[in-house]
């Protein structure tokens, strides 16, 4: 089964307070940040690699971004991708639509039975990209996939709905799936693995080579401003015995005019 996995490079911001919005209020200060593969995309990659290990066929990891995005492709190659392609275009982050156009064009130029994307990204969390690409390719799709079993010419898929309900059905190939976290346990990518993957092919293309012009990539959605949410609510810990704290609470409620 030939698979394409789309991945995105995002900052590893495990400690929230290290993020600062740059003066232009249009993006965050990237200076000291460290970058990694978007979590959802790592689950998609692991799904792809396991599928390839089971069924054979090729696995291509693709992304759309500038030169420094090669590192995430190296990690994808170390994880098990046979080859990697980067479309050299610094996309405006918030606009999934134009990224989808690039990915759709790239995918059309490659042999594929299945396209796997992460359900959403950790930075903007739009959750639109995969399904848009599917629509552009005219292939059936399913979002938020938490279970996948390949069959002859099709895949059996489980989708995660609210309240823990699972919905499962089969989809004819070629198809596109967006992968939810928890579907598997992504493997660790060792430094030795990355070194060995240096030998694998990483191809760089320009949008032009895919027949895409600047107008075609004009963003549908314009980002106005980035800001931190206002510090609204606050929490008060009421000490003392149950009686004391009850009395204290009552006085707070009265002063807030609730009664």
């Amino acid at each position: 089964m030939d698979i394409i996995a789309c991945i995105k490079r995002i900052p590893d911001t495990s400690e929230a307070d290290t993020i600062k919005i740059d003066p232009s209020q249009m993006s965050i200060e990237k200076g000291s940040l460290v970058f990694k593969i978007n979590d959802w995309d790592e689950y998609a990659l692991e799904t792809a690699v396991q599928l390839k290990e089971r069924t054979g066929g090729s696995l291509i990891a693709v992304t759309v971004g500038p030169k420094e995005w090669d590192d995430v492709l190296r990690r994808a190659l170390a994880m098990g991708a046979d080859r990697a392609i980067r479309v050299d275009q610094d996309m405006v982050a918030a606009d999934c639509h134009s990224v989808a156009i690039v990915l759709a064009a790239l995918t059309r130029s490659l042999p594929y039975d299945l396209v796997l994307c992460g359900a959403q990204s950790e930075d903007f969390g739009c959750g639109q990209l995969g399904v848009m690409v599917a629509e552009m390719l005219g292939v059936p799709h399913a979002a938020l996939v938490v279970g996948l079993q390949e069959e002859e010419g099709k895949v059996r898929v489980d989708r995660e709905l609210e309240a823990g309900i699972l919905e499962s059905y089969t989809i004819e190939l070629p198809a596109l799936l967006t992968i939810q976290t928890g579907i598997n346990r992504p493997r660790y990518i060792s430094l030795g693995g990355i070194k060995r993957a240096m030998k694998k092919e990483l191809q760089v293309m320009s949008p032009g080579e895919l027949g895409l012009t600047a107008e075609m990539l004009a963003p549908q959605v314009k980002l106005e401003r980035l800001e931190f949410p206002p510090r609204g609510k606050e929490a008060v810990l009421i000490p003392g015995t149950p009686e004391e704290s009850a009395e204290h609470l009552a006085s707070i409620l009265q002063s807030a005019g609730i009664f």
């Binding site: 495990s14 400690e15 000291s32 060792s190």
Partner: peptide, 29 residues
């Protein structure tokens, strides 16, 4: 490690060291 099959906590430890130079994932500054 080479097969990538390590417990989740070990994966976290090693990735944090790869990226942030400490197992906690705290910023280098």
């Amino acid at each position: 490690v080479e097969r990538g099959l390590v417990p989740a906590a070990v994966k976290e430890f090693l990735e944090n060291v790869q990226r942030h130079g400490n197992p906690y994932g705290n910023a280098r500054e």
